[in-house]
Simulated assay, not measured.
Amino acid sequence: MKRSLQGHYLKTATAGESFNSFVPAPLPPRPAIDWTPALRSRFDAALVALGRLDAVTDLLPNAALLLYSFVRKEAVLSSMIEGTQSSLADLMLFELDEQPGVPLEDAREVSRYVAALEHGLQRLRGGFPLSLRLIREVHAVLIGDHGRGARLTPGEFRTSQVWIGGTRPGNAVFVPPPTNEIDECLRHFERFLHDLPETTSPLVKAALAHVQFETIHPFLDGNGRLGRLLIALQLSADGLLREPMLSLSLHFKEHRQTYYELLNAVRLTGDWEAWLEFFGDAVLASATQAATSARRLLELASTDGQRIAALGRAAASALAIHQALQRQPIATAASLTATTGLTPATVNKALVHLERLGVVAELTRKLRGRVFSYVRYAEILNEGMALPGRGL
């Protein structure tokens, strides 16, 4: 289907330079999406995969154990797309007040992503609607109000021009709407999220809204991460996924060039169908992988639990450590003491047993502040996301 430009250009001038900025047309697309049998089949398969992933939470003895790591995996991957060099281990070490293997600001940035997602989900579960106000709240948490973040007006829509690629608007790859158009663009965007002027199915809405948000680029910084975070919030708000176990950022990272090209193609040629094909494939692949990983982690934990139970008198304390490591597979002896309520001596004895069984491995050689990993558990979580030359 041929469409015209999905919006219009405005001649804009700033700092003595004139350039064209792009103002997107309101959603839904016009003419309507051409739901070919192939495209419909992709979305049907994606919806089935999402349903299976959602059902996994019913099979878990304690979903919170897995969710802790799944949310952090998505945070790391989404931040990697923007160039952050923090790994999952770096984030967990940072949360333990241990020195990560990257600059602290990288670890802080990923940690703020986790906090932003958790804040948004908590507000939605409390009955607050997905709205511009909530998006501003989430952005404020994501960016932070100190250090580098304080200069980026956290929680406030931008009042100056931004651009993507290039050194200035005049040579940029893409220039989002000027500031005097943002309010109107966002008003239409919020109406679309609320199924106005017409109802849109949740998964399609998530796909379309992601592109529109990235095109409006309403903040000075954090638009890419917030745009991906918005997918999880919208799927939760519309009841399609109860827990944030979907990690689309892994697929986006692996196909980063295609991801950006398709976003731009929608703006320039109106090819929503190509974007929807990509998005449907991303959901199908990501949901299938997440469900498979969850089951593998559950099976591993069950098998290791049976081996630990055979320890006899030492089993009870070792099983408590084992459960704590399922929530946070990178931990210190001190953090395990705090989490389990066991004495330091009991924790250390239990760790000796778990090391002997091959369940955990010490990552450091320090007498104090030793760091341990639930090795095979961490390896499953880390699949597809290791930084070049680095492990978990």
Rank of each mutant, 00 (worst) to 15 (best):
K2N: 13
S4L: 15
Q6V: 14
G7I: 01
Y9E: 02
L10E: 02
L10C: 08
E17Q: 15
F19S: 07
N20W: 06
P24Q: 12
I33D: 00
T36L: 12
A38C: 11
D44P: 13
A46E: 10
R52W: 09
D54G: 08
D58F: 10
L60D: 12
N62M: 05
L67T: 04
Y68M: 12
S69L: 05
F70R: 00
F70G: 01
S78Q: 09
G83C: 08
T84F: 08
S86M: 14
D90P: 00
E95P: 15
E98T: 13
E98C: 07
E98A: 14
E109R: 02
E109P: 02
E118N: 08
G120M: 12
L121K: 13
G127M: 14
P129R: 09
L130N: 01
S131Y: 04
S131F: 00
L132N: 03
R133N: 12
I135W: 09
E137V: 15
V141R: 06
V141Y: 06
G149S: 03
T153G: 05
P154H: 01
R158N: 12
R158Q: 01
S160P: 12
S160G: 14
W163P: 03
G165H: 09
G166Q: 11
G166L: 07
R168S: 12
R168C: 10
P169V: 00
N171Q: 09
P177S: 03
D183L: 09
C185H: 05
R187Q: 04
F189A: 05
E190Y: 04
R191D: 14
L193A: 14
H194Y: 11
L196D: 10
E198V: 07
S201A: 11
P202K: 00
A207G: 07
A207D: 06
A209P: 03
Q212M: 09
E214D: 01
T215R: 11
I216L: 04
H217D: 13
P218I: 15
P218F: 07
P218C: 10
G222W: 00
G224T: 02
R228P: 00
I231S: 00
I231C: 04
Q234W: 08
D238W: 08
L240Y: 01
R242H: 08
R242M: 14
M245L: 13
S247H: 11
R256T: 07
Q257S: 15
A265E: 09
R267A: 15
D271F: 00
G280N: 05
V283Y: 02
L284E: 10
A285M: 10
Q289V: 09
A290H: 05
T292F: 15
T292C: 10
R295T: 12
L297I: 07
T303A: 15
I308Q: 02
G312Q: 06
A316G: 12
A318G: 13
L319G: 01
Q323R: 06
Q323A: 03
A324F: 05
Q326N: 07
R327A: 11
Q328K: 13
Q328T: 10
A338P: 12
T339P: 13
T339G: 11
G341C: 06
T343V: 11
P344K: 02
A345R: 08
A350M: 01
E355P: 14
E355S: 05
R356V: 02
V359C: 01
R365K: 15
G369S: 06
G369M: 00
R370F: 06
V375R: 12
R376V: 04
R376Q: 15
R376H: 11
N382T: 13
E383F: 02
M385Q: 04
G391E: 02
